[in-house]
Write a protein that binds this DNA or RNA. Structure first.
Length: 473
DNA sequence: TCTGGGGTCCTAGGACCC
DNA sequence: TCTGGGGTCCTAGGACCC
Protein backbone atom coordinates (compact mmCIF):
# COMPACT_ATOMS: atom_id res chain seq x y z
CA UNK A 1 0.00 0.00 0.00
CA UNK A 2 1.38 3.42 -0.88
CA UNK A 3 1.98 5.76 2.03
CA UNK A 4 -1.04 7.85 2.83
CA UNK A 5 -0.66 11.54 2.13
CA UNK A 6 -2.16 12.36 5.51
CA UNK A 7 -1.97 15.95 6.55
CA UNK A 8 0.85 16.41 8.96
CA UNK A 9 3.42 18.82 10.27
CA UNK A 10 6.01 17.78 7.72
CA UNK A 11 9.29 19.44 6.96
CA UNK A 12 7.65 22.26 5.02
CA UNK A 13 5.09 23.16 7.66
CA UNK A 14 5.34 26.59 9.10
CA UNK A 15 6.94 26.18 12.49
CA UNK A 16 4.81 27.60 15.26
CA UNK A 17 2.03 28.50 12.85
CA UNK A 18 1.19 24.93 11.85
CA UNK A 19 -1.81 22.87 12.80
CA UNK A 20 -1.23 20.05 15.27
CA UNK A 21 -0.40 16.96 13.28
CA UNK A 22 -2.78 14.02 13.65
CA UNK A 23 -1.07 10.97 15.11
CA UNK A 24 -0.63 7.94 12.89
CA UNK A 25 -0.84 5.45 15.74
CA UNK A 26 -3.76 3.28 16.84
CA UNK A 27 -5.37 3.22 13.37
CA UNK A 28 -6.84 -0.07 12.16
CA UNK A 29 -6.38 -1.46 8.69
CA UNK A 30 -10.05 -0.87 7.94
CA UNK A 31 -9.85 2.76 8.98
CA UNK A 32 -6.83 3.18 6.75
CA UNK A 33 -8.77 1.82 3.81
CA UNK A 34 -11.79 4.02 4.28
CA UNK A 35 -9.49 7.01 4.75
CA UNK A 36 -7.87 6.22 1.44
CA UNK A 37 -11.27 6.05 -0.23
CA UNK A 38 -12.09 9.45 1.20
CA UNK A 39 -8.82 11.02 0.10
CA UNK A 40 -9.28 9.80 -3.43
CA UNK A 41 -12.89 10.97 -3.39
CA UNK A 42 -14.24 7.74 -4.84
CA UNK A 43 -17.94 7.88 -5.53
CA UNK A 44 -18.13 11.32 -4.00
CA UNK A 45 -20.42 14.03 -5.33
CA UNK A 46 -19.69 17.70 -4.81
CA UNK A 47 -22.42 20.24 -4.08
CA UNK A 48 -20.72 23.13 -5.88
CA UNK A 49 -17.76 22.99 -8.25
CA UNK A 50 -15.99 25.79 -10.11
CA UNK A 51 -14.54 25.49 -13.59
CA UNK A 52 -12.18 28.38 -14.14
CA UNK A 53 -11.87 28.91 -17.86
CA UNK A 54 -8.78 30.92 -18.67
CA UNK A 55 -7.67 31.90 -22.19
CA UNK A 56 -4.03 31.15 -22.95
CA UNK A 57 -2.08 34.37 -23.63
CA UNK A 58 -5.35 35.90 -24.73
CA UNK A 59 -4.28 38.98 -26.71
CA UNK A 60 -1.73 36.97 -28.64
CA UNK A 61 -4.30 34.26 -29.34
CA UNK A 62 -6.68 36.91 -30.70
CA UNK A 63 -4.03 38.19 -33.11
CA UNK A 64 -3.21 34.65 -34.21
CA UNK A 65 -6.84 33.97 -35.09
CA UNK A 66 -6.39 36.17 -38.14
CA UNK A 67 -2.75 35.37 -38.70
CA UNK A 68 -2.53 31.58 -38.58
CA UNK A 69 0.98 31.86 -40.00
CA UNK A 70 2.06 33.05 -36.54
CA UNK A 71 0.93 29.88 -34.76
CA UNK A 72 4.36 28.64 -33.68
CA UNK A 73 6.22 31.91 -33.86
CA UNK A 74 7.10 34.26 -31.00
CA UNK A 75 4.47 37.01 -30.74
CA UNK A 76 4.12 40.05 -28.46
CA UNK A 77 1.31 42.50 -27.83
CA UNK A 78 2.34 45.97 -26.70
CA UNK A 79 0.66 48.54 -24.47
CA UNK A 80 -0.69 51.89 -25.59
CA UNK A 81 1.88 53.96 -27.44
CA UNK A 82 3.77 50.68 -27.93
CA UNK A 83 5.56 51.30 -24.64
CA UNK A 84 5.74 47.94 -22.91
CA UNK A 85 4.82 44.27 -23.17
CA UNK A 86 1.29 43.29 -22.11
CA UNK A 87 0.98 39.81 -23.63
CA UNK A 88 3.50 37.15 -24.64
CA UNK A 89 3.19 33.94 -26.56
CA UNK A 90 4.71 30.84 -24.97
CA UNK A 91 7.71 31.13 -27.31
CA UNK A 92 8.37 34.63 -25.98
CA UNK A 93 8.00 33.51 -22.36
CA UNK A 94 10.52 30.78 -23.05
CA UNK A 95 12.96 33.47 -24.17
CA UNK A 96 12.66 34.96 -20.68
CA UNK A 97 10.79 38.14 -21.58
CA UNK A 98 8.96 39.29 -18.43
CA UNK A 99 5.47 40.77 -18.37
CA UNK A 100 5.39 44.56 -18.41
CA UNK A 101 8.96 45.10 -19.54
CA UNK A 102 9.70 48.28 -21.52
CA UNK A 103 10.07 47.55 -25.22
CA UNK A 104 13.33 49.49 -25.61
CA UNK A 105 14.95 47.15 -23.11
CA UNK A 106 14.32 44.07 -25.26
CA UNK A 107 14.71 45.65 -28.69
CA UNK A 108 17.77 43.58 -29.44
CA UNK A 109 16.07 40.33 -28.41
CA UNK A 110 13.07 41.16 -30.59
CA UNK A 111 15.28 41.52 -33.62
CA UNK A 112 17.45 38.52 -32.92
CA UNK A 113 14.50 36.14 -32.54
CA UNK A 114 12.26 37.82 -35.11
CA UNK A 115 9.54 38.38 -32.54
CA UNK A 116 6.36 39.68 -34.15
CA UNK A 117 4.96 42.72 -32.29
CA UNK A 118 1.42 44.07 -32.31
CA UNK A 119 0.03 47.30 -30.87
CA UNK A 120 -2.89 46.49 -28.57
CA UNK A 121 -6.16 46.27 -30.48
CA UNK A 122 -8.63 46.39 -27.62
CA UNK A 123 -11.73 46.56 -29.78
CA UNK A 124 -10.75 43.25 -31.33
CA UNK A 125 -9.94 41.60 -27.99
CA UNK A 126 -13.17 42.78 -26.41
CA UNK A 127 -15.19 41.44 -29.30
CA UNK A 128 -13.52 38.03 -29.16
CA UNK A 129 -13.99 38.01 -25.38
CA UNK A 130 -17.71 38.61 -25.74
CA UNK A 131 -18.02 35.78 -28.24
CA UNK A 132 -16.27 33.44 -25.82
CA UNK A 133 -18.47 34.47 -22.90
CA UNK A 134 -21.62 33.97 -24.97
CA UNK A 135 -20.41 30.51 -25.95
CA UNK A 136 -19.73 29.63 -22.31
CA UNK A 137 -23.25 30.71 -21.44
CA UNK A 138 -24.64 28.17 -23.91
CA UNK A 139 -22.70 25.43 -22.08
CA UNK A 140 -23.52 26.33 -18.48
CA UNK A 141 -26.38 28.15 -16.80
CA UNK A 142 -24.22 29.81 -14.18
CA UNK A 143 -21.31 31.77 -15.60
CA UNK A 144 -19.47 34.47 -13.66
CA UNK A 145 -17.33 36.61 -15.93
CA UNK A 146 -14.23 37.49 -13.97
CA UNK A 147 -12.11 39.39 -16.49
CA UNK A 148 -11.70 39.88 -20.20
CA UNK A 149 -10.21 36.39 -20.55
CA UNK A 150 -11.52 34.43 -17.54
CA UNK A 151 -14.84 33.12 -16.32
CA UNK A 152 -16.02 30.79 -13.57
CA UNK A 153 -18.57 28.15 -14.57
CA UNK A 154 -20.51 26.83 -11.59
CA UNK A 155 -21.70 23.20 -11.50
CA UNK A 156 -23.94 21.67 -8.85
CA UNK A 157 -23.99 18.16 -7.45
CA UNK A 158 -21.40 16.57 -9.73
CA UNK A 159 -18.78 13.85 -9.45
CA UNK A 160 -15.15 14.47 -10.31
CA UNK A 161 -15.56 12.58 -13.60
CA UNK A 162 -18.60 14.64 -14.62
CA UNK A 163 -16.88 17.91 -13.79
CA UNK A 164 -13.79 16.89 -15.72
CA UNK A 165 -15.83 15.80 -18.70
CA UNK A 166 -17.54 19.19 -18.73
CA UNK A 167 -14.17 20.94 -18.55
CA UNK A 168 -12.93 19.09 -21.63
CA UNK A 169 -16.16 19.94 -23.42
CA UNK A 170 -15.67 23.65 -22.65
CA UNK A 171 -12.13 23.56 -23.97
CA UNK A 172 -13.14 21.76 -27.12
CA UNK A 173 -16.13 23.97 -27.82
CA UNK A 174 -14.20 27.23 -27.44
CA UNK A 175 -11.40 25.89 -29.63
CA UNK A 176 -13.90 24.80 -32.26
CA UNK A 177 -16.26 27.82 -32.27
CA UNK A 178 -13.81 30.64 -31.55
CA UNK A 179 -10.36 29.18 -32.06
CA UNK A 180 -8.80 30.46 -28.84
CA UNK A 181 -7.02 27.88 -26.66
CA UNK A 182 -8.23 27.80 -23.04
CA UNK A 183 -7.14 26.07 -19.85
CA UNK A 184 -9.66 24.89 -17.30
CA UNK A 185 -9.10 24.39 -13.58
CA UNK A 186 -11.66 22.41 -11.58
CA UNK A 187 -12.08 22.70 -7.79
CA UNK A 188 -14.50 23.41 -4.97
CA UNK A 189 -13.13 26.92 -4.38
CA UNK A 190 -12.19 29.70 -6.74
CA UNK A 191 -8.67 30.03 -5.36
CA UNK A 192 -7.99 26.34 -5.96
CA UNK A 193 -9.58 26.51 -9.40
CA UNK A 194 -7.21 29.33 -10.33
CA UNK A 195 -4.21 27.36 -9.19
CA UNK A 196 -5.48 24.28 -11.03
CA UNK A 197 -5.91 26.15 -14.31
CA UNK A 198 -2.40 27.51 -13.94
CA UNK A 199 -1.18 23.93 -13.55
CA UNK A 200 -3.18 22.83 -16.59
CA UNK A 201 -1.52 25.57 -18.65
CA UNK A 202 1.99 24.85 -17.35
CA UNK A 203 1.73 21.13 -18.09
CA UNK A 204 -0.30 21.26 -21.26
CA UNK A 205 0.98 18.02 -22.75
CA UNK A 206 0.22 15.92 -19.65
CA UNK A 207 -3.05 17.60 -18.67
CA UNK A 208 -4.57 18.28 -22.07
CA UNK A 209 -5.44 21.75 -20.78
CA UNK A 210 -7.69 20.55 -17.95
CA UNK A 211 -6.79 19.90 -14.31
CA UNK A 212 -9.21 18.88 -11.57
CA UNK A 213 -8.24 18.94 -7.90
CA UNK A 214 -11.42 17.71 -6.28
CA UNK A 215 -9.86 14.82 -4.39
CA UNK A 216 -7.48 15.28 -1.49
CA UNK A 217 -4.54 13.53 -3.07
CA UNK A 218 -4.42 15.78 -6.10
CA UNK A 219 -5.19 18.87 -4.08
CA UNK A 220 -2.26 18.28 -1.78
CA UNK A 221 0.07 17.52 -4.68
CA UNK A 222 -0.92 20.75 -6.41
CA UNK A 223 -0.31 22.77 -3.26
CA UNK A 224 3.07 21.16 -2.66
CA UNK A 225 4.14 21.80 -6.25
CA UNK A 226 3.45 25.53 -6.20
CA UNK A 227 5.29 28.37 -4.47
CA UNK A 228 3.13 30.57 -2.32
CA UNK A 229 3.49 33.42 -4.81
CA UNK A 230 1.38 31.48 -7.35
CA UNK A 231 -1.61 31.67 -5.05
CA UNK A 232 -4.35 34.09 -6.08
CA UNK A 233 -4.15 37.08 -3.75
CA UNK A 234 -0.51 36.69 -2.80
CA UNK A 235 1.48 39.46 -4.47
CA UNK A 236 5.03 40.63 -3.99
CA UNK A 237 4.62 42.18 -0.53
CA UNK A 238 2.72 39.28 0.95
CA UNK A 239 5.15 36.80 -0.54
CA UNK A 240 8.04 38.58 1.15
CA UNK A 241 6.34 38.55 4.54
CA UNK A 242 5.26 34.92 4.20
CA UNK A 243 8.74 33.84 3.18
CA UNK A 244 10.13 35.53 6.27
CA UNK A 245 7.89 33.18 8.26
CA UNK A 246 9.34 30.19 6.32
CA UNK A 247 6.07 29.81 4.41
CA UNK A 248 7.37 28.99 0.95
CA UNK A 249 4.80 26.73 -0.71
CA UNK A 250 1.06 26.94 -1.21
CA UNK A 251 0.91 23.82 0.93
CA UNK A 252 2.70 25.45 3.85
CA UNK A 253 0.26 28.35 3.63
CA UNK A 254 -2.71 26.00 3.61
CA UNK A 255 -1.50 24.40 6.87
CA UNK A 256 -1.28 27.67 8.79
CA UNK A 257 -3.40 28.30 11.84
CA UNK A 258 -6.20 30.72 10.99
CA UNK A 259 -6.33 32.57 14.30
CA UNK A 260 -2.60 33.12 14.42
CA UNK A 261 -2.53 34.29 10.81
CA UNK A 262 -5.41 36.68 11.41
CA UNK A 263 -3.34 38.42 14.06
CA UNK A 264 -0.53 38.96 11.55
CA UNK A 265 -2.45 39.52 8.29
CA UNK A 266 -5.75 40.82 6.92
CA UNK A 267 -8.96 38.83 6.63
CA UNK A 268 -8.23 38.41 2.92
CA UNK A 269 -5.32 36.08 3.53
CA UNK A 270 -7.29 34.08 6.09
CA UNK A 271 -10.00 33.57 3.48
CA UNK A 272 -7.33 32.52 0.99
CA UNK A 273 -6.07 29.85 3.39
CA UNK A 274 -9.59 28.49 3.84
CA UNK A 275 -10.05 28.45 0.08
CA UNK A 276 -6.81 26.49 -0.36
CA UNK A 277 -8.35 23.86 1.90
CA UNK A 278 -11.29 23.57 -0.47
CA UNK A 279 -13.70 25.74 1.46
CA UNK A 280 -15.83 27.96 -0.75
CA UNK A 281 -15.45 31.38 0.85
CA UNK A 282 -15.51 33.74 -2.12
CA UNK A 283 -18.90 32.53 -3.29
CA UNK A 284 -20.59 35.11 -5.43
CA UNK A 285 -18.67 37.98 -6.98
CA UNK A 286 -20.66 39.82 -4.37
CA UNK A 287 -20.41 43.30 -5.88
CA UNK A 288 -23.51 45.19 -6.82
CA UNK A 289 -21.98 46.01 -10.17
CA UNK A 290 -19.02 48.10 -11.09
CA UNK A 291 -18.20 50.91 -8.68
CA UNK A 292 -15.91 53.14 -10.72
CA UNK A 293 -14.97 54.03 -14.26
CA UNK A 294 -11.49 55.21 -15.01
CA UNK A 295 -10.20 56.57 -18.28
CA UNK A 296 -6.59 57.64 -18.51
CA UNK A 297 -3.73 57.60 -20.96
CA UNK A 298 -0.04 58.25 -21.08
CA UNK A 299 0.84 60.70 -23.82
CA UNK A 300 3.14 59.91 -26.65
CA UNK A 301 4.89 63.25 -26.22
CA UNK A 302 5.13 65.38 -23.09
CA UNK A 303 2.36 67.98 -22.87
CA UNK A 304 2.94 71.45 -21.44
CA UNK A 305 -0.02 73.64 -22.50
CA UNK A 306 -3.24 73.76 -20.52
CA UNK A 307 -5.24 73.89 -23.75
CA UNK A 308 -3.79 70.52 -24.83
CA UNK A 309 -4.60 68.94 -21.49
CA UNK A 310 -8.14 70.27 -21.88
CA UNK A 311 -8.46 68.44 -25.17
CA UNK A 312 -7.22 65.18 -23.64
CA UNK A 313 -9.40 65.42 -20.54
CA UNK A 314 -12.46 66.26 -22.64
CA UNK A 315 -11.89 63.16 -24.69
CA UNK A 316 -11.30 60.94 -21.63
CA UNK A 317 -14.43 62.27 -19.94
CA UNK A 318 -16.57 61.62 -23.03
CA UNK A 319 -15.34 58.02 -23.19
CA UNK A 320 -15.97 57.49 -19.49
CA UNK A 321 -19.46 59.00 -19.82
CA UNK A 322 -20.32 56.60 -22.64
CA UNK A 323 -19.35 53.72 -20.39
CA UNK A 324 -21.36 55.17 -17.53
CA UNK A 325 -24.48 55.32 -19.68
CA UNK A 326 -23.85 51.80 -20.95
CA UNK A 327 -23.97 50.65 -17.31
CA UNK A 328 -27.21 52.63 -16.95
CA UNK A 329 -25.80 54.58 -14.06
CA UNK A 330 -25.55 58.18 -12.95
CA UNK A 331 -22.53 59.43 -11.06
CA UNK A 332 -21.98 62.10 -8.45
CA UNK A 333 -18.23 62.24 -8.10
CA UNK A 334 -15.64 63.27 -10.68
CA UNK A 335 -11.92 62.95 -10.01
CA UNK A 336 -9.17 64.25 -12.27
CA UNK A 337 -5.46 63.62 -11.97
CA UNK A 338 -2.38 64.59 -13.89
CA UNK A 339 1.30 63.89 -13.48
CA UNK A 340 4.71 64.37 -14.98
CA UNK A 341 6.98 61.44 -15.78
CA UNK A 342 8.09 59.15 -12.98
CA UNK A 343 11.46 58.63 -14.62
CA UNK A 344 13.36 61.72 -13.58
CA UNK A 345 13.23 64.17 -16.42
CA UNK A 346 12.91 67.61 -14.90
CA UNK A 347 10.80 68.62 -11.91
CA UNK A 348 8.11 66.21 -10.79
CA UNK A 349 4.50 67.15 -10.15
CA UNK A 350 1.42 65.03 -9.50
CA UNK A 351 -1.98 66.14 -8.30
CA UNK A 352 -5.57 65.03 -8.14
CA UNK A 353 -8.84 66.45 -6.94
CA UNK A 354 -12.49 65.53 -6.79
CA UNK A 355 -15.79 67.40 -7.10
CA UNK A 356 -19.12 66.27 -5.76
CA UNK A 357 -21.95 67.17 -8.12
CA UNK A 358 -25.28 68.52 -6.84
CA UNK A 359 -27.22 65.97 -8.82
CA UNK A 360 -26.17 62.55 -10.17
CA UNK A 361 -25.68 62.83 -13.93
CA UNK A 362 -24.58 60.88 -16.97
CA UNK A 363 -24.47 63.90 -19.26
CA UNK A 364 -21.14 64.30 -21.03
CA UNK A 365 -21.46 68.08 -20.98
CA UNK A 366 -21.90 68.32 -17.21
CA UNK A 367 -19.15 65.77 -16.51
CA UNK A 368 -16.75 67.50 -18.88
CA UNK A 369 -17.39 70.89 -17.28
CA UNK A 370 -16.65 69.41 -13.88
CA UNK A 371 -13.48 67.70 -15.12
CA UNK A 372 -12.18 70.84 -16.81
CA UNK A 373 -12.87 72.89 -13.69
CA UNK A 374 -10.69 70.51 -11.66
CA UNK A 375 -8.01 70.45 -14.33
CA UNK A 376 -7.71 74.25 -14.37
CA UNK A 377 -7.34 74.19 -10.59
CA UNK A 378 -4.62 71.53 -10.65
CA UNK A 379 -2.67 72.73 -13.66
CA UNK A 380 0.67 74.38 -13.06
CA UNK A 381 2.60 75.84 -15.97
CA UNK A 382 6.24 74.88 -16.48
CA UNK A 383 5.83 71.12 -16.10
CA UNK A 384 6.02 68.45 -18.79
CA UNK A 385 2.96 66.28 -18.27
CA UNK A 386 3.04 62.64 -19.33
CA UNK A 387 -0.28 61.31 -18.11
CA UNK A 388 -3.75 62.41 -17.10
CA UNK A 389 -7.00 60.71 -16.29
CA UNK A 390 -10.56 61.00 -15.10
CA UNK A 391 -12.36 58.75 -12.61
CA UNK A 392 -16.12 58.58 -12.11
CA UNK A 393 -17.42 57.16 -8.81
CA UNK A 394 -20.40 57.28 -6.47
CA UNK A 395 -22.92 55.70 -8.82
CA UNK A 396 -26.68 55.56 -8.51
CA UNK A 397 -29.09 53.58 -10.64
CA UNK A 398 -31.65 56.34 -10.80
CA UNK A 399 -31.38 60.08 -10.64
CA UNK A 400 -32.51 60.44 -7.08
CA UNK A 401 -31.18 63.34 -5.08
CA UNK A 402 -31.89 64.89 -1.76
CA UNK A 403 -33.43 68.31 -1.64
CA UNK A 404 -31.00 70.94 -0.51
CA UNK A 405 -32.42 72.94 2.39
CA UNK A 406 -30.39 75.99 1.56
CA UNK A 407 -31.25 76.11 -2.06
CA UNK A 408 -34.36 77.09 -3.88
CA UNK A 409 -35.71 73.77 -5.16
CA UNK A 410 -36.47 75.47 -8.46
CA UNK A 411 -32.72 75.49 -9.17
CA UNK A 412 -32.72 71.79 -9.99
CA UNK A 413 -34.36 71.86 -13.34
CA UNK A 414 -35.76 68.38 -13.88
CA UNK A 415 -36.94 69.08 -17.37
CA UNK A 416 -33.52 70.20 -18.43
CA UNK A 417 -31.96 67.07 -16.96
CA UNK A 418 -34.36 64.87 -18.86
CA UNK A 419 -33.64 66.69 -22.10
CA UNK A 420 -29.99 66.04 -21.43
CA UNK A 421 -30.68 62.31 -21.06
CA UNK A 422 -32.49 62.26 -24.39
CA UNK A 423 -29.66 64.08 -26.14
CA UNK A 424 -27.10 61.64 -24.72
CA UNK A 425 -29.20 58.67 -25.80
CA UNK A 426 -29.24 60.02 -29.34
CA UNK A 427 -25.51 60.66 -29.27
CA UNK A 428 -24.79 57.11 -28.10
CA UNK A 429 -27.05 55.70 -30.78
CA UNK A 430 -25.26 57.57 -33.55
CA UNK A 431 -21.83 56.62 -32.25
CA UNK A 432 -22.80 52.99 -31.81
CA UNK A 433 -23.29 52.77 -35.54
CA UNK A 434 -19.94 54.30 -36.34
CA UNK A 435 -17.49 55.36 -33.67
CA UNK A 436 -16.68 59.05 -33.49
CA UNK A 437 -19.60 60.25 -35.64
CA UNK A 438 -20.65 62.90 -33.13
CA UNK A 439 -18.64 64.39 -30.30
CA UNK A 440 -18.74 67.41 -28.11
CA UNK A 441 -16.49 70.43 -28.29
CA UNK A 442 -12.84 69.83 -27.58
CA UNK A 443 -12.99 66.04 -27.38
CA UNK A 444 -12.81 65.52 -31.13
CA UNK A 445 -9.34 67.00 -31.42
CA UNK A 446 -7.76 64.21 -29.38
CA UNK A 447 -7.93 61.14 -31.56
CA UNK A 448 -6.09 62.41 -34.62
CA UNK A 449 -3.36 64.24 -32.73
CA UNK A 450 -0.07 62.35 -32.94
CA UNK A 451 1.30 64.05 -29.85
CA UNK A 452 -1.19 62.23 -27.68
CA UNK A 453 -1.34 58.74 -29.02
CA UNK A 454 0.54 56.51 -31.33
CA UNK A 455 0.21 52.92 -32.47
CA UNK A 456 2.62 51.70 -35.07
CA UNK A 457 1.72 48.06 -35.41
CA UNK A 458 -2.03 47.93 -35.01
CA UNK A 459 -3.78 44.92 -36.50
CA UNK A 460 -7.06 45.44 -38.28
CA UNK A 461 -10.56 45.67 -36.78
CA UNK A 462 -11.27 42.25 -38.30
CA UNK A 463 -14.55 41.70 -36.51
CA UNK A 464 -15.92 45.15 -35.80
CA UNK A 465 -15.64 47.09 -39.05
CA UNK A 466 -16.93 46.21 -42.49
CA UNK A 467 -14.00 48.11 -43.99
CA UNK A 468 -11.51 45.79 -42.35
CA UNK A 469 -12.99 42.33 -42.70
CA UNK A 470 -10.41 39.62 -43.26
CA UNK A 471 -10.03 38.72 -46.93
CA UNK A 472 -9.93 35.14 -48.14
CA UNK A 473 -7.63 34.62 -51.08
C1' DT B 1 13.51 58.05 -28.21
C1' DC B 2 10.93 54.44 -25.30
C1' DT B 3 8.40 52.75 -18.94
C1' DG B 4 0.05 50.21 -19.49
C1' DG B 5 -4.66 50.88 -18.27
C1' DG B 6 -8.03 49.34 -16.17
C1' DG B 7 -10.35 47.55 -11.72
C1' DT B 8 -11.48 45.69 -6.48
C1' DC B 9 -11.12 45.29 -1.56
C1' DC B 10 -9.28 46.25 3.07
C1' DT B 11 -7.51 49.13 6.75
C1' DA B 12 -6.41 53.08 9.40
C1' DG B 13 -7.56 57.32 10.93
C1' DG B 14 -10.31 61.54 11.30
C1' DA B 15 -14.85 63.76 11.91
C1' DC B 16 -18.82 63.55 14.16
C1' DC B 17 -22.48 61.89 17.23
C1' DC B 18 -24.58 60.45 21.64
C1' DT C 1 0.63 58.67 35.22
C1' DC C 2 -3.77 57.78 33.49
C1' DT C 3 -7.55 62.78 29.99
C1' DG C 4 -14.66 58.31 28.33
C1' DG C 5 -16.25 55.06 25.16
C1' DG C 6 -18.42 53.34 21.47
C1' DG C 7 -20.51 53.71 17.07
C1' DT C 8 -20.89 55.27 12.06
C1' DC C 9 -19.40 57.34 7.97
C1' DC C 10 -16.01 58.94 4.90
C1' DT C 11 -11.53 59.18 2.70
C1' DA C 12 -6.79 58.13 1.50
C1' DG C 13 -3.61 54.85 0.61
C1' DG C 14 -1.87 50.26 -0.02
C1' DA C 15 -1.99 45.73 -2.00
C1' DC C 16 -3.52 42.91 -5.35
C1' DC C 17 -5.46 41.28 -9.92
C1' DC C 18 -5.72 40.94 -15.14
Amino acid sequence: MPPLPLAGGGADSAGGLAYNAPMLTDITEKEVQSEEERLLGRGQRYARVYLLTDCNNFFVSCERLFRPDLEDRPVLVLSNNDGCVVARSQEVRDLGVPMGVAVFKIRELIERHHIVCFSSNFNLYLDISQRIMRTLETLCEEVEIYSVDEAFLVLHDVSEEEAEEMAFKVRKTIACHIGVPVSVGVATSKTLAKLASHHAKQHLSETGGVYAVLNEVKRERLLRDNPVSEVWGVGRKLRERLNELQIETAYALSRCDLKKMRRLFSIVLVNTIRELNGEDVIEEGGTEGQAQIMWSRSFKERITALSDLEVALSSFTSEAAVRLRALKRYCRRVTVYLRTSLYGEGPHYAAEDTVLLDVPVADTRVLTQAALKILRRLYKPGFRYMKAGVILTDFTARRTFQGDLFRDSGEVDLKRLEEGDALMALLDKLNARERGTVYLGLAGAYAGDKRFTHKKQLSRAYTTSFEELPVLM
